[in-house]
Structure formats: C-alpha cells, structure tokens
Design a binder for these strands. Sequence first.
DNA 1: ACTGGCACTCGCAGGGTTCGAGTGCTAATC
DNA 2: GATTAGCACTCGAACCCTGCGAGTGCCAGT
Lengths: 338, 338
Amino acid sequence: MSEDRRRAVLHAIVEGYVSTSEPVGSKALASSRHLGVSPATIRNDMAILEEEGLIAQPHTSAGRIPTDAGYRSFVDHVAAQALQDPHKRAIRTFLSDAVDLNDVVERSVRLLSQLTRQVAVVQYPSLRESAVRRVELVRIGTDRALVVVVSADARVEQSTVALGMEPSDDEFETVARDLNEAAVGHTPAPLIESLARWVSRPGQVVWAAGVADAVVAAAKGGTVRRVVFAGTSNLARASTDFESDAIGPILDALEEQVVLLRLLHEMTGTGQDVAVRIGAETNTEALARTSIVAAGYGPTGESSSLLGALGPTRMDYPGTMAAVRAVARYLSRVVENE
Amino acid sequence: MSEDRRRAVLHAIVEGYVSTSEPVGSKALASSRHLGVSPATIRNDMAILEEEGLIAQPHTSAGRIPTDAGYRSFVDHVAAQALQDPHKRAIRTFLSDAVDLNDVVERSVRLLSQLTRQVAVVQYPSLRESAVRRVELVRIGTDRALVVVVSADARVEQSTVALGMEPSDDEFETVARDLNEAAVGHTPAPLIESLARWVSRPGQVVWAAGVADAVVAAAKGGTVRRVVFAGTSNLARASTDFESDAIGPILDALEEQVVLLRLLHEMTGTGQDVAVRIGAETNTEALARTSIVAAGYGPTGESSSLLGALGPTRMDYPGTMAAVRAVARYLSRVVENE
DNA sequence: ACTGGCACTCGCAGGGTTCGAGTGCTAATC
DNA sequence: GATTAGCACTCGAACCCTGCGAGTGCCAGT
C-alpha cells in the first residue's frame, strides 16, 4: 500500500523544508530520510502528491515545498508532541513569581514568544462573574467622576463619567455612600435591578443614571477584551519567508486588535485543545502567509480566553503546538488560583 | 561670506536626501534648488562639508548623504515648523473623545504614529503626588491579599502581597479598617511615617509590614513607568533605510521597555521643548541607525513624562518635531484636566 | 571668489554563458 | 504491478564582462 508511504513522504518534505527553508528534492529525501526506497519511487509519489495539491515546486528545476493544504494534512496527522523538559521548567519558574494579573499576562506572552520563537499573542482572561465588593466614586474636576469598582475576585475596573452638571461636595459624598449600599454584594444580574431601583428613587440626582451605567459596565466584565503580543522581532528573523513588504501589514494586523480578536474568536470552540489556522485559512489578507496556533485557557471547565503563536506558514508546527498547549495549561492553573 | 551658503548647501542635501532617499549630487542641487550658484561652487562647499564630517559619499561616483553630525547640524539650525492645519484638527478630534487615561494614552500613540509616519512612543504620565483617598484590601485565596489604592487625583494602583500566614476573616477585616484610618488623607511623605507607626503598634499583626510597603509603593507613583508604542509597521515601510536584519533588534529594543525608558530618561531635562537623538547619539547598538524625537508633557510647569517618535536617521526632522511638539502640548492639556 | 571645462573613477544594469540540481519518462528488474 | 536505474531535458542561480553615465576633483580663466 503506497498510501502510507505517500504520507511519510509528505511529512518528510514538510520537516525538511521547515528545517532548511529550501525546497527538498527526491534525492536528498531518499538519502537523509530512512524511507527505504529509491529517489525514483519518491518522485512517483511526489507526482501524485502534487496532483492532490499538497506540494508544489517553485520552479521547474527545484525541489518541492508544501502547500497550505500540505501543511494542513501534516498537522492533522501528526501526533501530539511532548514539551522538552527544560522548557517545562522554564514555564514554571517564569510564571510562578508573577505579582498580579497584568504581570501574569505580560510574562506569559514573553515566555510563549521565547519558547516558540514566534510572535506570541495572549488575550486577557475574562474572569467569572463575581459580586461587587466596593464602589469608589472620585471627583475629577468639577463635572466628572471616576468610578472604580472592586469585585470580590480581586479585579479592579475603572472608568470616568461626565456628570453633566456640578453637584455640591456634600451631595456628591451622599450619593457615593448610597451607591455603595445599593451595589455592594451583588453579582451583575441582581446588581442591574438594584441600581435601577436606586436610580429611580424619589429625589435621586439626575446624574445617578450615568454613574449606575458605568458601575454595571465595570462589574460585567469591564473593559473591552484586550490582546497583548510579544516577539515581533521573530517576524524580522523569518524574513526569508516573507516578501520584504509583507511584514508591515502583519505588524499592522497585530496592532489592529480588532482583526486579531475576530480571528481568535473564530478559532474558539473547534473542540480540540489546540487549533491551527494555516495561511489563507486565516481569512485575512495580511496574514495570508502566516499561520496561527492557538489554544483556549481559563478556569477548569471553561476555556474562556485564548492565547497563541503566530508565524510564517513554514513553522515548526509540532513544537509550536506543544509550547502553546503547555503554556495554556499552566496559565489556566494560575488563573484558577488568582 | 561662504559660511551661510555652506549651511544652505547642507540643508539642501539633507532635504533632498530625506525626500528622495538617494544621494544628491552637485548638479541636481544647483538646478533644483534656488541657490544662485554653479555646480562647481557647490562642489567646493561640499568638499569642505565633507572635511568637517557633515556629509559623506557612499562611493566615489555617487552624490553625498548627510552623516549623523550633518543631521545634527541641520536640526540645530532649522527653525521650528508649524503643524499643518488638518493635522491640528486631527489631534483635537482624536483626543477629545477619550474615555479614560488608558484610552488617552492609546489614542495619543496611534495618533502620533500616523502624523509622523514613524514609530510613536508614549510614556504613561506620572501624576503629581497626591493624598490617599482610600485603601481597599481584598483577600485572595487564603494567604494573599490585593491592595488597591485610590488616590485623590483619581489614580488607581493595585498590587498583591503574600501574607505569609492565614489570618482569620475577622482579623483581616479589622486590619483593613485600621489601615484605612492610618492611611487616608496622607500624601506620600507623611504616609510613610503614619504607616510606620501603624505597623509598630503594640499587638499589630506580623503581615502588616508587607501590606504597608505595598500601600506606600502604590501611593508613591505606583507601578513601574510603562511605555507603549504603535506604528511599528512604519519600520518595515522604511526598510530601504535599514539593512534587512536591522529591524529585529529595533523591535526587540521597543519591547524591552528598559532600554527605551533609559533612553527617554536621558533625554529629559535638556531644556528645549523637543529633544532629538540622532543615530549613534542614542548610545544603543540596536538603535544606531535610528533617531528619536521626544518631548516632555505633563501638567503645567512640570513636564514629567515623555513621548516621541522613532524612525530611521533619514527622517523628516522638522515635520516630526512639529508633530511631537503639538501632540505633547495637547496631551499636557488633557492630563491637566484629567 | 566664482565658474566652465575636462579627465577620471567606479557602481550599476544588461547580456551572455556556464553549472548543476532536480525532474519526468522509459525500459529493465524484482 | 510496484520499484528502480538510467538518461535527456529544463531552467534558475551565479558569474563574468562590458558599456554607460552620474558625479567628482582639479585647473585655468573670468
């Protein structure tokens, strides 16, 4: 049965091309790899693989390189790989002495970019619903206020609201006290009702509505889901994989959080632990020649946020997948305890 | 007096090279520019300029390009330029509807990168000393606590501390209440004393010291001074100015906040409104072929933080300086009111 | 002090050639 | 029928050579 060998040939081509970044020919394959067949046989297989659209040759007198479909087939059939021990240790030491959530995310993204030697991307964790612990109302200037919401799970969200008028200091303090009474101890659902009642109290100040909205928004999950990244210099390092003018758009796409968020969002819920998008599968022009390896993380049961690595389609998929999987797992544990 | 003309020649060379990115020759200079002299005269001037180290020729049969010293002389003698009107409007609209401090900084850095078409860098504003308005102590797990300090100027700082033991809930609440009494209303200087007294009270819990330290640190200016940047794709766009492998180190230096912070720090207090570091003046290997244009901003009187643009030495200095100056000015105004 | 003229230098672009890796095909072999 | 050896063929990369022209430095003249 030549089916199996064809797959072996494909895998050998992928691995060879990934490690040397040069098209691989039948002869080199036959000698360096331990497939026990001659170059001619491999050539026949290659012809079939090419017909199936899994490999291509850049020009007539060159070896073959995998197409996006080729990488896809490779990724789908390769066995999950274990992470190297030193890397495991690196993860533990790196993440263990983080001081707060920001620090955890910051460290994770750097760590992941080092392990994968790609651009690492980490989405801020969305924490579960939790009760409001305290609301702090601070006056800014004369007609604006800062709303700080501290939730029971140790999250702090803040935003400013325009009051639309200039209340007296006494009035301001009273409202702040009342607001706390109405808000503290509630999880978002009852909080909304409780604050609605508070706003419609007889004699309530007109600017209460704005403040209440801000509190609810902050309690609900707060600010927009943000994404941080690191290791962009790895793109420059891999410049042989990109036309010289392809790096700019990639950098733009990274800063343009929106694109990334949409893409990561699309990748959730595929069921597997690690999801991979290859080349054109990203559905993003700027990322047509890049691949993304992503995994969900979060408290046990729900993997509510994503993290991943982005690099040229010519990347070490097994290694990257292992690193992403491992960091996601450790990060889940950290978020769990936080 | 040929002194003046020589300077004019230098400026013409700089401007020509910046706009075309090709070495400029005596002939082109004489015809396109309105210096009323012949190419031969210009050549003589060029010979002198070259002797002074202000210009150089990449190879014998090519025109001249400015050296770092040449750019320096140009920058030092060029008059401040006004910002174009559409740009002025852009600044106003862009910054006016920011919702909080994060948003202001985020918008500023994007704006600046668009205006200058360079990489923009903004340091988070350090606000003035102000009194502690409230300290929130939230328990995390059993043996850690989150410390949130809200200051009178509407800043929120947080950090976590390990308690080293597991106090009872009652004890925890009591300490939290006492801590507030001891801390609220104090600016950093008296705060330190007040908390020291608090820590050494008879019967005080042992973990009070750790908490007090965290509060002081938060009140003092809080977390480390951070730097955000945007527009890195402009580096790729300007790839003609860099050897292909020079972009990686630059990206690294940007992510490596430390380097940037040191550099920006060195640039403060030069007296002028806009400071410029050209090429090797950055004292940073990775940035040897880049220039930085920076300006301080902050509440009136003190310009406590910095922002700037970073790009290839071959950049439009007058335009960049104007944009940096303008954004710094507007941002100062915003921070003032915040 | 400036200018016109002139000989000189040297990088760059274009064209031609060689070299060799890699292929596809066909006929022989297991 | 699958595999292999052999062979003619293709075509890009590298190299060399050459001519062109931009730009220069210098010198004599104004």
